[in-house]
Nucleic acid binder design. Structure first.
Lengths: 247, 247
DNA sequence: CGTATTGTTGAGCGTAGTCAAAGTTAGTGG
DNA sequence: CCACTAACTTTGACTACGCTCAACAATACG
């Protein structure tokens, strides 16, 4: 069931190691984690709200989003995850998953037994620190999203999310051009920013008209990076990542 | 500097033990954590954005809030913390604090060296699990706030926050009447819900007029608990706590 | 090539924001 | 203990950002 597929977890290890100091022993131990590989289609659930599970999931390729739905049917996307991201560290620590995670594109993922994660964290304090750091950064991103939705206007929200995705994709080693993968529909962009799809459309058009970006179906092209950052009130400190290289 | 003040950390231990299974050894070890006690006045900073610290803070009494400020001056309160809550587990795991934490009332707190927390978590896996669980619940609450601000209208947001504070105060063993401490001004309530103080005021008045609550300067009285829950679209599952007793 | 999904446009509306001032409560110092 | 001041709450009039509804165009996909 769970095998130790050498190299499969590389995207996760790369991410952890890029943010925390890990020695050869730790990296090797992470590589030996038992895991079960799987793929998912667009829209498929990695975790369903209410689920009880004893594994956690690592996204190996593609994009996914976390969401929760209000009692009146409004869906809020609370985070976007990309290659290397750890998802559902909750495992059996919580009674039930409090939100869903769904694939935004076709994805590859790995399931790792929760107990193995806890064990490896106990055995290697450096790994425990890396996992803690990872979760703390997720919390910081979550707070920034709340700041955006609570305090910024439509234009800033959209531009800010564009900036975040660009910086995170670069950090994850996905694309580096002015052109980036863009996995979300305008409807989903609205669910992430607390806006309707119609208003998202008008806002994106305004950013295009101002020469900041260009969009095609599944891609986002950055035309004026400083301008986009300014339009989105974007300061990348909250991502706790090294600065984006190209101007 | 750091002493092991027996019993001082009781509110934190109580909270951890109420959510996770901890044995006598773990509870004793938590009680032996070195800590430095301090008090703070309303408005004082427990953590300031940009700070670098090697301690984490435990709130022993009173209320505090986390906030981050946009480049245009908008302040978003991202969480409210009460007695027993762990604050700033980040310590030296992150380069710098990405948000501030300020006292909402006069508070008592304890500073614990970050390294002591990591050590005790390494030594006692059950404590590691309890701390993980604590952080995961914080994440769930954060997502719910994002859902509120992104998808719910003014009335729902305010009512929802009232409900959350009531349930959490009960869980923390603070008050149990229909009357609860209410530490926030309407201005702050607006900063928490992404609304202006003026609109908060009108919304609170509407909840009062509908016979759901009553408010006085520093207290909130629940008149119609089921009605308030309905008005706030409140389901407490996201708090991952036992159900509130009284109807 | 046909159909479903996604993106775009327009008109009208409503929730929440803005600005400004008055009323009320709490806190402070004489 | 009272007077004064600062902080907080309340009210009113007006504005505007973003929503709703509805239709149509373009694109992806089977």
């Amino acid at each position: 069931m769970f095998t130790s597929d050498t190299g499969a977890l590389a995207p996760m290890i790369r991410k952890l190691a890029s943010r925390s100091a890990l020695g050869a022993a730790e990296i090797e131990a992470l590589g030996r984690l038992p895991c079960r590989l799987a793929t998912g289609n667009r829209g498929s659930y990695l975790i369903r709200e209410g689920d009880r599970t004893d594994t956690c999931v690592v996204l190996l390729s593609g994009f996914a989003y976390r969401s929760r739905i209000s009692g009146y049917g409004g869906r809020q996307i609370t985070a976007v995850q990309l290659r290397g991201d750890l998802i559902g560290l909750h495992g059996d620590l919580l009674d039930a998953a409090d939100h869903s995670v769904q694939a935004l594109t076709r994805i590859d993922m790995a399931h790792i037994p929760q107990q193995s994660m806890l064990d490896i964290a106990t055995q290697y304090p450096a790994i425990a620190r890396a996992l803690w750091r990872d979760v703390l950064v997720d919390g910081s991103v979550s707070r920034e999203w709340l700041l955006s939705v609570g305090q910024r206007d439509a234009r800033q929200r959209i531009a800010h999310l564009f900036c975040e995705m660009v910086v995170r994709q670069e950090a994850a080693g996905i694309g580096a051009g002015p052109r980036y993968d863009w996995p979300m529909t305008q409807e989903q962009l609205g669910e992430a920013t607390g806006m309707t799809a119609v208003h998202v459309n008008r806002t994106v058009q305004s950013l295009r008209a101002d020469g900041l970006i260009d969009t095609a179906r599944h891609s986002l092209t950055i035309i004026d990076w400083p301008g986009l950052q300014a339009a989105g009130d974007f300061k990348q400190a909250y991502l706790h990542q090294p600065a984006r290289q190209h101007a």
